[in-house]
């Protein structure tokens, strides 16, 4: 499973962990979790502030067709959300403290707008978060631009970088 857990908490240098498509990463203070160049995909970040543990998933499509998919666990929103939550809980977090933020779900070309991949992704992620009982604290989804997202497990800041600049949500 594509997760990272580091043993010593204090003297670590800040490391950056990148989640490729369909992957998830979980890490704790002071490391950073990054997803680069999101288009229609969703970057979902979960964070437990008291525990300073964060997790991100790079989600590609809303639904895994028949559940028989043996590929990367976080390709599909309906599978990725529960899997990421479960992985967070393995890292001494408490479900009631976890909050979610998400970004992505764009449509890069106007000719692709009718497919609504990004929009559908965002909807299913939200539904799944609701099912899991996790609050969505912020989002930056839709639009027609790419995003790189970073979750800082030290501060809990979820920043979104686009061609126009960086903002925190």
């Amino acid at each position: 499973m594509a997760t990272e857990r580091l043993e010593s908490e204090s003297e670590d240098e800040v490391e950056r962990y990148y989640a490729g498509i369909g992957e998830m990463k979980v890490a704790h203070n002071p490391h950073q979790l990054i997803i680069m160049g999101l288009g229609s995909c969703i970057g979902l970040a979960l964070y437990d502030r008291p525990a300073k543990v964060g997790g991100i998933a790079h989600i590609m499509l809303p639904e895994g067709k028949d559940g028989s998919n043996t590929g990367k666990c976080c390709k599909f929103a309906d599978i990725a959300v529960p899997v990421l939550v479960k992985e967070m809980l393995r890292h001494k977090t408490a479900k009631e403290r976890i909050v979610a933020k998400m970004a992505g779900g764009a449509s890069m070309f106007s000719a692709m707008d009718s497919l609504q991949i990004g929009d559908r992704n965002a909807i299913v992620v939200k539904e799944e978060l609701k099912k899991a009982g996790i609050m969505l604290a912020g989002e930056d989804t839709g639009g027609n631009y790419g995003r790189t997202v970073t979750l800082d497990t030290c501060t809990g800041v979820f920043s979104v970088k686009t061609k126009d600049g960086i903002k925190s949500i």
């Binding site: 288009g39 229609s40 692709m112 991949i117 631009y145 790419g146 790189t148």
Partner: peptide
């Protein structure tokens, strides 16, 4: 006019 991977990703996902 944007990040290369955002475009490629969008097409491949579609």
């Amino acid at each position: 006019f944007d990040m290369m991977s955002a475009m490629m990703e969008n097409l491949m996902v579609a």
